[in-house]
Design a protein around this nucleic acid. Structure first.
Lengths: 229, 229
DNA sequence: GCATTTTTGTGACATACATCACACGATTTT
DNA sequence: AAAATCGTGTGATGTATGTCACAAAAATGC
């Protein structure tokens, strides 16, 4: 169950859904700029939330697994356009909820409204920390931040260190860090030569999460914000 | 009156306040990392919302005049620490509202809860566009974005163009754009030589807002998000 | 009005980072 | 098994932008 919303309110969201939708791997559930009246709750599979820049680069913001709420930012928006792209990384299934239905429900049920507001502010703080890492600590900071987040979301503790158990390419990491594949490659190899990380096949093992955290002043941040979801 | 919250709900916020506070020019109303149980509504004066990086640089995010809601992001937070700094740029006065009081009120009054949620999502989208400009369009994009926002918030239409009627130094613009004073200076002079802007004393006149907008793909964005507040 | 401080302007240089080019190994397809 | 594709590694080079140094102009204080 997501850390965002209680089981009870997750059930409530389920009730509000008017259909479920299967999304094939690689397909867009929604795209930035597109009009739409729905948002979604992931039931199975995985989605990547991203944003395209003018010159075709893609900035990745979230990886969303089961029970994540996505496409939710347009609720109460004037113009009803999605801000991001949501693409299925695997064959996936989602609940579809009409914005007007949730708006009604929020008015009718203030306990639910508060829970939902809580989720939104949480989400906001999470996005904010990502923002901070990107803007205040440069490309390197963004990469470190991405590694830390992936460790918190997909890391498996082994005696060797934390194994990032997701199939990510250097290009993927670059997209999450608004930098280039080559820079990611070089920086990862620098980290490896320092003994901070190592590779196991294509996957990354982090030996010193602390080192990465220190570089971006990450000490105080509650780890619930520090993930990639 | 702010574009964020209706007069009625602004009155409601006023009722919830347990005191008003005068803040002298230059003083911090709150600082990042600081514990606190309150948020604020500006009654008079002006506040700057900012964030410090590890190496002492300051990233400025908002300029907040009367009826802006500030320090609100910690509502429902686990750790109760401010994410930003709020500093008075002039002698100012604010309403002080306890987080627990608003949390109670939101539970009791769902119409208010929805209105508040609306404000938060609006705010989120606004921050998001700033984020996009900073990360996706580089330093130049950040500066253009800042100029556009200031034009929308403080611009006065004259026959000459849009006069930015705020006292801002190049250093201020740099802080809003996460760049350096010198870069701002050079870029402004480049814009001047292209006839996009000109100077009237210390103030900036924008002759072609469209040019700036085009550079950062700003066409579709509703101008209510595109301000500095 | 003079002195001091703040703000702006600009050259020289250093650095971070993107881009291009290409090689190589691994994986997948035919 | 050969061919094609994909992911990685790395040097060379260009560009954007930060930093330093210092001067001129403007604003402010006394």
């Amino acid at each position: 169950m997501s850390q965002f919303i209680s089981k009870k309110n997750f059930e409530q969201l389920k009730k509000l859904a008017y259909k479920t939708l299967k999304v094939k791997k690689g397909m867009f559930l929604f795209q930035e700029g597109q009009m739409g009246q729905n948002f979604f709750v992931v039931l199975s599979g995985k989605f990547q939330i991203s944003k395209f820049s003018g010159d075709g680069k893609e900035l990745c913001l979230r990886l969303c697994g089961p029970s994540a709420v996505i496409g939710e930012l347009m609720i109460f928006s004037d113009n009803g356009r999605y801000l991001f792209n949501g693409r299925a990384l695997e064959d996936s299934e989602v609940l579809v909820i009409k914005n007007e239905d949730i708006e009604k429900e929020l008015l009718a049920n203030s306990e639910f409204a508060v829970e939902f507001l809580k989720m939104m502010t949480d989400h906001f703080r999470k996005q904010h920390t990502k923002f901070r890492d990107l803007v205040l600590y440069g490309k390197k900071g963004a990469l470190y931040s991405t590694l830390i987040r992936m460790a918190n979301s997909y890391g498996i503790q082994t005696k060797d260190g934390i194994l990032l158990d997701v199939p990510v390419t250097h290009q993927d990491l670059a997209n999450f860090s608004s930098t280039s594949r080559e820079s990611v490659n070089r920086e990862l190899n620098t980290l490896k030569s320092k003994g901070i990380i190592s590779f196991k096949g294509r996957k990354i093992i982090i030996h010193s999460l602390d080192y990465l955290k220190k570089q971006i002043n990450c000490e105080g941040c509650p780890s619930s914000y520090c993930n990639i979801e």
